[in-house]
Design a protein around this nucleic acid. Structure first.
Lengths: 136, 136
DNA sequence: CATAACTGTAACAATTTTTATTACATTTTT
DNA sequence: AAAAATGTAATAAAAATTGTTACAGTTATG
């Protein structure tokens, strides 16, 4: 999951730093992150579906923030990039005949959820504007 | 990272539930988790190096908790199983000629660390004893 | 003291996930 | 019409994770 979040933060920081009204191309972004432009477009697609960016096709096209950077919390970005529970990707199938095995996934999920809530809350303390200000 | 933590929680819960003085074999544990005993032994090796369990070789050998379950915080287990920063596994090499690319890893690491601290603190609220009590 | 039941660990294999690439249809500006 | 973008599917490559085999070492016990 971290990879996607990392890329999304990078993309959004670039967009936050772009001039008002500028459409930033996936090629330019890919050059900064140093990854393939297709991955950037895929990730932008996800951000777009989550209402964080808008894009324009065609010549001089590109993407920009859908709303001001101070109205985007870092937790919004986290939640947009995580797919399914990010802790607890246990695809273990414990033994249902064991009293512990039978119930552990349920209990772990509860634990993961609590932990993740704490993490999300922390990420909600700062906005994309705060983050991009670190680069000044 | 989650896989290791999940397995370790499972192992330690079984040990916490074992009778006082009992040595639990990796085969029994593997049967409950439904994974290969070698993986269990590897994971136990890590827990042992982190002072959470002790093991005994030879016939009737196995492992047990190194200290009472109420003296083990869940965060101790998390910290024992995470190797390197668990958030921020970005092996991206952003473009150093870009003002954002040049600094983003540094800033993201700071962010990840803060977030992880919040998560660890949350996990420190409960002990292995608390967790294993959920199975009663 | 021989055997059985364990642990510890290395080497290797298989699987799954992540990341990258290619290709091309579509959109928009000029 | 040409150029410069996005969007997306299909596929390939690389990396990470998980599983397996093999075997040396240890300990209890008949």
């Amino acid at each position: 999951m971290t990879g996607q979040f990392t890329i999304s933060m990078h993309i959004l920081t670039l967009l936050a730093k772009a001039a008002e009204g500028e459409w930033v191309s996936s090629d330019l972004i890919a050059g900064s992150i140093n990854i393939n432009p297709v991955l950037v477009r895929k990730e932008i697609g996800n951000l777009r579906r989550n209402g964080l960016v808008v894009s324009r096709e065609g010549k001089n096209g590109g993407s920009r923030l859908a709303k001001p950077a101070n109205q985007v919390r870092v937790s919004d970005i986290f939640l947009a990039t995580r797919q399914g529970p990010f802790l607890g990707t246990s695809r273990n199938k414990p033994n249902p005949n064991c009293p512990v095995g039978k119930e552990i996934n349920r209990h772990l999920e509860a634990l993961y959820q609590e932990a993740e809530e704490a993490l999300v809350q922390k990420l909600g303390d700062s906005t994309l504007a705060d983050f991009s200000r670190r680069f000044d």
